[in-house]
Design a protein around this nucleic acid. Sequence first.
DNA 1: CGCAAAGTTGAGATAGGTCAACTATTGTGG
DNA 2: CCACAATAGTTGACCTATCTCAACTTTGCG
Lengths: 258, 258
Amino acid sequence: MMTSEQTGRPLVRGPGAVRERRDSREGADSCSGCPVVRVCLPGVVPAMQIPQVESMVVHQRTIPAGKALFHAGEPFAWLYAVRSGSLKSTSTDIDGREHILNFHLPGEVLGFAAIYYGRHAASAIALTASTVCYLSFTEIQHLGRAFPALSLELLRIASRSALYTGRLTGDHNATVRIAAFLLSLSGRFRAQGKPSSEFDLFMSREDIANHLRLAPETVSRVFSQLRAQGVISVRRKAMRLLDEERLQGLAGPMLPYG
Amino acid sequence: MMTSEQTGRPLVRGPGAVRERRDSREGADSCSGCPVVRVCLPGVVPAMQIPQVESMVVHQRTIPAGKALFHAGEPFAWLYAVRSGSLKSTSTDIDGREHILNFHLPGEVLGFAAIYYGRHAASAIALTASTVCYLSFTEIQHLGRAFPALSLELLRIASRSALYTGRLTGDHNATVRIAAFLLSLSGRFRAQGKPSSEFDLFMSREDIANHLRLAPETVSRVFSQLRAQGVISVRRKAMRLLDEERLQGLAGPMLPYG
DNA sequence: CGCAAAGTTGAGATAGGTCAACTATTGTGG
DNA sequence: CCACAATAGTTGACCTATCTCAACTTTGCG
């Protein structure tokens, strides 16, 4: 529905793109005036050529909380760079049970998994109102010729998400998984330049549980237990990491990346 | 050790590459005489330009069973395309406990996860003696300019592995995971043009268990149980899928890809 | 204010892990 | 070629972490 416009014509503009493009060229308002390339794919394109790329690849749009950026099954035409807000990608099985594959924060790119089959395998749902850059994959391919750094950066990004998923797959018990999850979030907030030991859980307990393959009750219990131990302080969605040292310990000896 | 030669100099040939390169140019023996590009990355490069690419990118080498293709922590310089045999990638935590992230069969490409940090996060160990093509990442980047299809294909491949990992992350109970694993193997054998309902488990029960986050005993039990139900027939490593319909049912309603 | 949704906490049920004994297979040296 | 040992796999009995069900509390919203 909302994303139906994206499907057919590969070289076409993204929905809602026109306004943003004009803004970004002319520096109209606040920092939506900054080149979108710089915001969405920082460091990828040499400063001098930004305008050229800017005018071709990137559009953006705002997704209200709870709405889908794209649905599983839709043809793949765009990659999406989160600019603000937060999303989850969920793969829904035929029974209708969803599984949350990942959460997405600003600076992260969605849609890679769709390249292979040319269709989205997962849906992306905004958890909070989110601004997302649309990157036409067709144009990305063309541009890749002129700016090899672009293709490379995309590979790097794809690589990063592979790493994350691999890491999640690993550990076993509830406490370990939750500790690791909190640290992962923390690191991703830090990557955004936001406070990393005091942040908002932008998803529900149920979503956390689903993502970590736990029951929501277990998430609650482990949170309570960690709170009792003075490792975290959590009230509703307000999470504070009080003893990251110990949290690291609980998360188990993990590889030093992620 | 074995891979130390790869580390330093990006544009350098892969170990053991010289012989193979000569072979592939001059069509010396059997089908190792075929252009390596065609074998390792079928369909990526237009037929006419194969020789050009061939002479630059690809080298190959044989890894004996049990030996490492690369180790976690090593600098990243190559992608690897499996030509024959089988490997596992394992990430070892500080305790020394390993976790098997994936198994790799001919036609599959390893090493993507290393692009992001420029170092391998996982080790790749040959389960059976394996022949592997080395693809210099530096040269890949250069060639990407001339052959955009190359970069694209790499993205597609990275995408595919993201899909697989995502899928593995999903399901919960032992039977489901094992059924899904068997079907995944089956599909990958089919992709090789090998029999897909009768194949050799090239890894130990322990490896399967590790990969699926189960106890080896559980794998045994589920195998026995599936055998009792007439769904599979398994003796030692010889696996036969007797009722793929039902196996699909057990694997749970999954998305139709993988 | 009151209802719906989200989260917490408790008690009992269970899938799968752990420990252990046993069997089958492979490899080794006499 | 045959013990014999080492390794891999199977099976059983028990135990524990987590799930399930359920009551209750808190928060948010019309």
